[in-house]
Design a protein around this nucleic acid. Structure first.
Lengths: 202, 202
DNA sequence: TGTTTTACTGAACAGTGTTCAATACATTTG
DNA sequence: CAAATGTATTGAACACTGTTCAGTAAAACA
């Protein structure tokens, strides 16, 4: 019965076609301004069909949210070769910020846009937890080599992520204009350098 | 000619009435889901009249944005009595986080929601710059008393604000659920404590 | 008493997410 | 092969959104 197999493939293809269109529109217009009709037009289908393959706009969001995390984690995995944990931690921060700069819209989807429907129930954010565990492990490695003595690793992880996210979020939402003398890039890079300088003394 | 004076007063009253309705709806539903019709219904007027008193939804947003900053700055001004600059800085952070916890929706308006129209032109965000200058001055005071040696005060200010904002933004957008073992309050308070611990060594 | 100005209404326009009866078509069954 | 079934797709419809605007009522001015 290769037919039902082919059917399944075709269905998956269609799902992927929608996702491709959605990605393009989402990353072009942002979550709020990307409409189902836009996506449908992009792939030359009727708007209704999207609801045959996805529950709602939120499910598409969650899929791209996941995609973004996979992308980020791929870039972070390159740093596995850095043996010294503290050097790796510093590089993780740099890569994280770079990712936000180069993938502003993915970053928005991943960390800023709030998905108001039932994403919490079906555990759509498990991949985020994974990424965070990864960061926490790294920080614990740093502690094993003598850094950040006496700090709770979970809180320290949250704080580190907050600092990074703060930098990126202010950038993504254009709240950096209040710093008139500096460009975005200068702010992010040198702001992060300040944070690293603090870490170095901890 | 007390008449044009009274007219002016009545017009201001109406503007305020709209703002009051808008505040209620905005802080109840959030920026995106608050509609002009909701606001109009709230104050028992026709939707159209709002456009007689405000240019668009964005102008109402900017007014409430300003309100939020005034509120925050009022709470921060209390700390002027703290003479030691570093103690004051630490307290500023605490108050900032507390403000976000207690005024989640104002915080959203102030630091997260992006206002896509022409807010940049008419300099609607001057108040944000003011607040940031305030923070930068405080950090420079700390430097004068021997802290954060050799750091560029503007970058350091940006970094500090980022750390604080990161904590609050993750909270406001419910991205803290990935830290399964801790409550929001625990994360924010203890996460900030970690940051302070770093500052203390800088 | 007009005339002008000002504040307000409510319908309309083009857009949104979502639903659903109708339809076209490939596959299975008789 | 023909009929029945099921699955994928359509496009109109619903209730909403921000915004505009002709019309209106009333107050102020001449």
């Amino acid at each position: 019965m290769g037919i039902i197999e082919r059917k399944r493939r075709e269905k998956l293809n269609m799902r992927q076609r929608i996702l491709n269109g959605a990605r393009k529109v989402f990353l072009q217009k942002g979550y709020e301004l990307a409409s189902i009709r836009n996506i449908a037009t992009e792939i030359s289908y009727s708007p209704g069909v999207i609801y045959f393959h996805f529950k709602d706009k939120g499910e598409i969001f969650r899929e791209l949210h996941r995609e973004g995390f996979l992308l980020l984690m791929n870039e972070l995995r390159i740093l596995d070769s850095v043996s010294d944990p503290f050097e790796r931690l510093k590089a993780v921060g740099r890569v994280f910020i770079q990712f936000a700069q180069q993938n502003k819209d993915y970053y928005n989807l991943m960390f800023i846009v709030e998905e108001l429907s039932k994403s919490a129930e079906d555990g759509g954010f498990t991949i985020a937890s994974e990424a965070i565990s990864h960061l926490q492990n790294l920080i614990e490695e740093c502690q094993q080599s003598g850094r950040f003595k006496g700090m709770d690793s979970e809180y320290f992880t949250f704080m580190t992520l907050s600092a990074l996210h703060g930098i990126c979020a202010l950038f993504c939402k254009d709240r950096t204009t209040s710093f008139i003398n500096k460009t975005n890039d200068e702010l992010m890079i040198n702001g992060y350098a300040c944070f690293v300088a603090l870490l170095e003394k901890g």
